[in-house]
Amino acid sequence: MSALSVKAASNAVALTRRGVTRSNRTRDGWEFMIRGLLGCTALISIAITAGIIMILLRETIAFIQLPEIHLTDFLFGTTWSPLLGAEKHFGIWPLVCGTFLVSMVAAATAIPLGLITAVYLSEYATVSKRALLKPVIEILAGVPTVVYGFFALLVITPALQSACNFLFGAPIFSGYNAGAAGIAVGIMILPIVASLSEDAMQSVPRSLREGAYALGSTKFDVSVKVVTPAALSGVMASCFLAITRAIGETMVVALAAGGLAHMTLNPADQVQTMTAYMVQIFLGDAPAFGVENLSSYAVAMVLFLLTLMLSIIGNILLNRFREVYE
């Protein structure tokens, strides 16, 4: 037994000694109270979810009931122009499209890099290489999102522009663009993909690897044909959870992606995401009860449902994976 367990045991002995002087009834009452108190703190998380749903639902219903809004336009419309023009249009698709574009660029950056990093960390890396790479990933995970926004706007965008200038003779990327924002978001979610996937690969039993090595496999065969398929649901969960973060990311897109909501899949264009629209409304001192203000709640509702759905899928995959191996 280690020092800690000895201490634990002596603590417990001291406790029981004290317990003797107190009657069992007060002790039980105390236990009951503590348990109730802790149970209440656990219920707060349910209250938070209920609060979010209630508020979003109330304001979204108020938005839909406005005379100038039609639900079908909101759900299927392809024009989003709440602030400009004589006639305001509220079709959610341009914002969804912008969010989708930024998230796809982010996923295209983060998933290949993250998965290869995870395989390397889990299967190839020596202790010293791990000691170098792990802190790098932890630092990337700890950098605040507004810093990535700064990086996207003032480093990645000029870099993309001058690269295109060099290659095609024109900058192509506009000053605000989905590509730079997507790459920055990708760097931001890279640690999620890498560390969750690595965890999943690490929990694949050693016997599977050893069986493969015994048959003469190389490390490549083991990592790509044995470990990755065995950890697949955990790896997929990491991708889903990372994309959830990308969809909800706010500061990067508010700084670097621009403010024009339109249907485009061109990463060199500026786009407006759902989160960026909310920032625009909440920063702009829009009247507290106007159409624009209510529309931001409806957008938040769509965003909430979308991220909730993805995160539920991710967690179900993760649970399934844990059931298999843990």
């Binding site: 998380s45 979810t49 979003l56 909800g248 909730l308 995160s311 967690n315």
Partner: peptide, 25 residues
């Protein structure tokens, strides 16, 4: 099980949505 499931999914809710809850509450 519900509390557990709920907490896992709360971790995925975008922070700006918590801002809306904070603004109202």
């Amino acid at each position: 099980a519900l509390i557990d499931f709920n907490i896992r999914n709360l971790a995925g809710v975008p922070s700006i949505v918590y801002g809306i809850l904070g603004l109202t509450a």
